[in-house]
């Protein structure tokens, strides 16, 4: 402290000089317009540059925080993409009409997985027990028949397509009274065969094949395909029709699971026998 005082007394002239110059500069900047303008613009220039640098440096410090924020935002946006949703909502189409009683209703679903392209195509549909799906329900879409539900989980079900060895569908000719059984015998997945049509049926190539509704799996009149060729089965005098399927079974996307509301009623008949 004493050395500081000593320094001050020895260099008093310098300190006085410096102090007075500061006072003068202050007076100049405060009371002289031209110098004030120069000082102001210089100050702005340097302070602007300084602020730029400071904010740049600050950006680096905030980088981590910014990253976290962006990651959070990304996750938020990802969760808003359509594929992030398991659609819990059911859209059951029900017709309100007093003279008509609802027989079938449809559970809208989406095919979310398909078996590898081979024989016996199967699908996984994002509907299960909690949506009311049961085994042996039919599945259709806008083009026609898709398949039949085989296994059901809580939220998903497995569907075997009509080109599966174990599928039998009651099918008939549209606007004609003949019907038989549709079956797939392997091979081309675009074609199936309809058996047990009486020999005398006037089948024309190109006739539409549709479901009959007799099996309680599909409603009546769901299109299946069109007749490609006919052949007489010598053994029992029936026609064997080759059917070209309407559905491209590898391209299907939508699935409407058909629920027969009168299945129990119909089953009672079987039990009574």
């Amino acid at each position: 402290m004493s050395s500081l005082l000593q320094l001050f007394t020895r260099q008093g002239a310098f300190f006085l000089f410096a102090a007075l110059e500061v006072v003068c500069l202050y007076l100049i900047i405060t009371y002289n317009t031209p110098q004030q303008e120069v000082a102001a613009s210089t100050w702005k220039m340097y302070s602007g540059e300084f602020m730029n640098r400071a904010s740049k440096a600050q950006d680096y410090f905030h980088l981590q925080q910014l990253n976290d924020q962006l990651r959070e935002e990304n996750a938020n946006l990802l969760s808003k993409l359509p594929n992030a949703f398991y659609i819990e909502a059911l859209s059951n189409d029900t017709i309100q009409d007093d003279s008509l009683r609802q027989r079938y209703n449809y559970i809208a679903g989406e095919i979310i997985n398909k078996s590898a392209p081979s024989a016996n195509i199967t699908y996984v549909v994002n509907r299960g027990h909690i949506h009311g799906v049961e085994p042996h329900l039919g599945v259709i879409n806008g083009e026609g028949v898709v398949g039949i539900v085989t296994q059901v989980a809580q939220r998903h079900c497995r569907v075997m397509s009509i080109t599966h060895h174990s599928v039998r569908i009651s099918a008939g000719l549209r606007n004609k009274d003949f019907f038989g059984t549709l079956r797939w015998n392997g091979g081309d997945t675009r074609k199936a065969k309809l058996y047990a049509i009486p020999e005398y049926a006037d089948v024309i190539i190109g006739d539409t094949i549709e479901t009959t509704g007799y099996s309680n799996i599909f409603p009546t009149g769901v299109p299946i395909g069109s007749v490609l060729s006919k052949e007489i089965n010598e053994g029992d005098n029936t026609l064997e029709l080759e059917v070209e399927l309407f559905n491209n079974l590898y391209g299907v996307k939508d699935a409407y699971i058909v629920r027969d509301l009168m299945k129990d009623d119909l089953n009672q008949l079987d039990n009574q026998e």
Binding site: F17, E21, V23, I28, T30
Partner: peptide, 28 residues
């Protein structure tokens, strides 16, 4: 003394500035 010289310079400078209407300029 040097300090006195500096101080007198400040005073005379301000006196000049007073009528030159340039506060601090001549004093500085």
């Amino acid at each position: 003394p040097r300090s006195l010289t500096v101080f007198l310079g400040f005073v005379l400078g301000l006196a000049i500035d007073w009528l030159y209407e340039s506060p601090g300029l001549h004093a500085g």
